[in-house]
Amino acid sequence: MVLLAFLVAITWAIIQLRDLFAAVMLTGIFSLISACLFMVMDAVDVAFTEAAVGAGISTILMLRTLALTEGRSDPRYNRLELGPLAVVVAIGAVLIYGTFDMPRFGDPNAPIHTHMVPRFLEQSSEIGIPNIVTSILGSYRGYDTFGETTVVFTAAIGVFLLLSDLRRGRRVDDALRDDIILRIGAKAPIPFIMVFALYVQFHGDYGPGGGFQAGVIFAAAIVLYTLVFGLAKAEKIFRRRRLELLVAGGVLLYGAVGVVSMLFGGNFLDYNVLAHDPVHGQHYGILLIELGVGITVAAVMVSLFFLFARRQQV
């Protein structure tokens, strides 16, 4: 409850702030507090993702956008607007009216806890993975996850189209070239981050984590590398062509798993047929599709970073 009140306070502060940098930083804090709330409500995977994405990726992208555009919002447009206020108060009232027939918060007898969930909790015989979130994500609702990977892929295509064709621009700040201590200091964690990413990737069956989070973390390592060695050098290793290959490859890998299971006589994304023992099949299937997600997400995040970083203020 206290955290929720915090969140409301932060949002109101954002409305008032003219300095966009501060507003973006507050948005990052907003995401972190949300992540804490998700944690409190037992959603560890969601908390992990929100922290990595909301507080991490989104903030970086927003800050870069600000650096490319303007840091302040025009005060002329920063007044209280009565029309919109009335609209949101009305909608809010309707929504609150709708809450009165809702099951109470935390009620274990609410329909959503009694209808589908028992099978998911008993699923160890079907899938055999302790982290239920991973088993639903990867198998029962694997098609949703395929869609989600495709959404990320779509966004990458959009950003490629929007940002890549314009003037190449001179190299942006080749960051830490001169500062040898910082350079070594910043270089040191890179391999560890990568190892951690791999851990998150392959340990998703047992703890929170999985392809998406791992991809983001892996991308973070490369971003750090870029900051240390400069964009030019990083781009030599991660050429646009190779990134495109990886972005598309991850989606294709995911799809291929589904197609292979169709060839083996199952339905699309039916991993049972991938091995003699259905439970093993489920393991292979989830492993492979998570890898596909990880590849696409990592490649997309790195591409986004490069594309935004390469642009220069017009």
Binding site: Y140, Y143, L269, D270
Partner: peptide, 10 residues
């Protein structure tokens, strides 16, 4: 999809 019967699967 995935061979799971609804409502568990899609």
């Amino acid at each position: 999809l995935g061979g799971w019967p609804p409502p568990w699967g899609i």
